[in-house]
Amino acid sequence: MADEPMLAEQNGAIPVAETARPFYQAVGNEEAVFKAAHRQGLSLLLKGPTGCGKTRFVEAMAHDLGRPLITVACHDDLTTADLVGRYLLRGSETVWVDGPLTRAVREGAICYLDEVVEARQDTTVVLHPLADHRRQLPIERLGVTLDAAPGFGLVVSYNPGYQSVLKDLKDSTRQRMVAIEFGFPATEVEEKIVVYEAGVNPATAAELVRLAHAIRRLETGGLREVASTRVLIAAGRLIVEGLSMREAARAAITGPLTDDGAVGRSLNEMIDVYLPELDGAR
């Protein structure tokens, strides 16, 4: 049943059915698209910059659908065995241990592969029979093919800003999925998010968002990423703890965004221009 609580929390899944809904502020029709795709057994591809809310969105959708959520942070060393499973020694016995993707297939959970392009392409090929009409997972080492349990969903995400010739999804993978594009929220929506998540007052949130917009307009090679909603929330939380707005922004925004001394000085100058030098605003 769609509203059954997650029973195997020890497997690393988040039990979503009996918890409060993760805070997510919709900015378009992304919730309707996700739920329609899930009902039809279609896999989803989420595209957008770092810190714009993709992971929180998946958490909220899993909660709404009453499905367990298993999240995998993809990286260069991620192997097929890491996703599917492997034989391990336990005492004097060799036992098979399911990987997160296999657990999701068996349990009817949503499997979320975060930054999927970081995984090797030979690893992501295992997703193909799951992402199309077959909805099956072949496990070569066991000599079996699993049919996805009802409620299973496959969701992957990546940041197009990092894509390159060597790090991109194969066309054969992309065309098996329904895509949802994410960007940073509109000003008023982003301010509400910062207020809710950081606990600052609306005026402080407005100042932080105004600074973020200025940084996002910059054209410089020293910034790998611009100021995300995530770093604004971190700055807001430091402000709640009593740091001044400028101190909080230097720690939560300038530091994470760049290691380049010149770029860092430029960001700090922008902070001095855009943010008042006041004690922490609660």
Rank of each mutant, 00 (worst) to 15 (best):
V126K: 08
T50V: 08
L146N: 06
A203K: 06
A251G: 07
F57S: 08
P276M: 03
G199P: 01
H63M: 07
G199E: 04
D147G: 07
E115W: 00
A251T: 13
T145A: 09
P160C: 07
E181H: 13
S92I: 09
L208M: 05
L83E: 05
A119N: 03
M1K: 11
T50H: 07
R246K: 02
Y274Q: 05
T80C: 12
E181C: 07
D171P: 14
Q10H: 14
V273H: 02
V200S: 06
A32N: 10
E140L: 04
G183E: 15
I233G: 00
A203N: 09
G91E: 05
V58G: 00
H75T: 05
V156D: 02
M1S: 14
L46T: 01
V189W: 05
T220P: 00
P68S: 12
V95H: 03
L46V: 06
G108I: 00
A73E: 11
L211C: 06
E207L: 14
P160V: 02
A109W: 00
L45A: 05
A262V: 12
D3I: 11
A235S: 13
T71K: 06
R134N: 06
T79D: 12
G261Y: 09
T124N: 04
A186Y: 11
L166G: 09
K54W: 13
G183R: 09
V125C: 03
W96L: 04
Y196H: 11
Y274T: 02
V189P: 09
C52Q: 03
E31K: 15
G183S: 14
C74A: 01
L78S: 04
K47T: 04
C111S: 08
L154E: 03
T123V: 10
V226D: 03
R237L: 08
K54N: 06
D82S: 13
E188M: 10
R176E: 08
E59T: 03
E197G: 10
T254M: 04
R176W: 02
K192L: 11
E247K: 14
F184I: 02
I180P: 02
H63R: 15
G99Y: 07
A205Y: 04
L137N: 13
A149N: 06
D272E: 09
R265N: 12
Q25E: 15
R210L: 06
A198T: 15
K35F: 04
V231Q: 01
S43D: 03
R282L: 14
L88D: 10
T79E: 15
P202A: 08
F184D: 01
V165W: 08
A252Q: 00
E247L: 05
V117P: 07
S172V: 11
E31Q: 12
D64T: 12
